[in-house]
Amino acid sequence: MPTKIEKDHISGQETTGHEWDGLKELNTPLPKWWLYTFYATILFSLVWVILYPAFPIQGWTGLTGWTARGALPAQLEAERARTEPMLARVREAGLQGTADDPELRAFALAGGRIGFANNCAGCHGAGGQGAPGGFPNLADDDWLFGGTLEDIHHTIAHGVRAGESDQERGIPMPAFLAMGMLTPAEIADTAEFVLSFTGRATDEAAAQRGAEHYEINCSSCHGPAGEGMREQGAPALNNQIWLYGGDRQSIIRSIAYSRAGVMPSWQGRLDPAMVTMITVYVHALGGGE
């Protein structure tokens, strides 16, 4: 307790009785209710600690047992209930109906963007720019399996070479060296011929020899002029877009050991409305077909 309470002769106020190196403090009393309010906040925090998991002890859940994770299902349920009417409308309208209705289209673009970011961007990249090593760019104008709404929807729903749906996309390409179908020299010639589609062949004789191998081994899927074939998911070889690299070495490697991209079937994994919305979103990325 302070003992040396004095009366300050200038202000007429009492001091608190505390002194620091000759400095004294005038006593300007705090209102008592203010103090009680402070006690009330302490009491509140005590009650809080007892009711909620606010104490840093392993396993202490508070009397209410409330956790943020425990509260999540209810929040998710509420969120589902909130979006369900619009999702039902998307399901009802179908693919083309959703794309044609301005309101549903705006909803699908917004929802599809989120769905794409959650499920697709890991391989196809944010914004669908793809990634080296066989993850196709979805914003360009080259479509392995077709770029119409129906085509994109089918690809997403059934997947690619994943063995999850009997309507899946894509057949495997033979590994011509590994399976002993072509010799290394023949593969080099074939690659030279493939380069000639885009005017990049440098050895006319080799390309001539390669044309024959191409005709027998490749043209049934990739087309006689390298135009590709969507039924099999065989990429076009006569344009500027190369899924696995368009240089000579990459092409030789592709022929020798084969390439085959895989994508899971999203039908059953995602709500049908979400598959529709992602389709509309992807179709809008680069304009689709």
Binding site: A126, G127, Q129, D140, D141, Q240
Partner: peptide, 18 residues
């Protein structure tokens, strides 16, 4: 302007921005 992708190469060699 689209941040991802910054630009897209098209099959004919053209460049597209979104």
């Amino acid at each position: 302007r689209d941040r991802a992708p910054l630009f897209v190469q098209l099959s004919d060699g053209g460049i597209r921005n979104g």
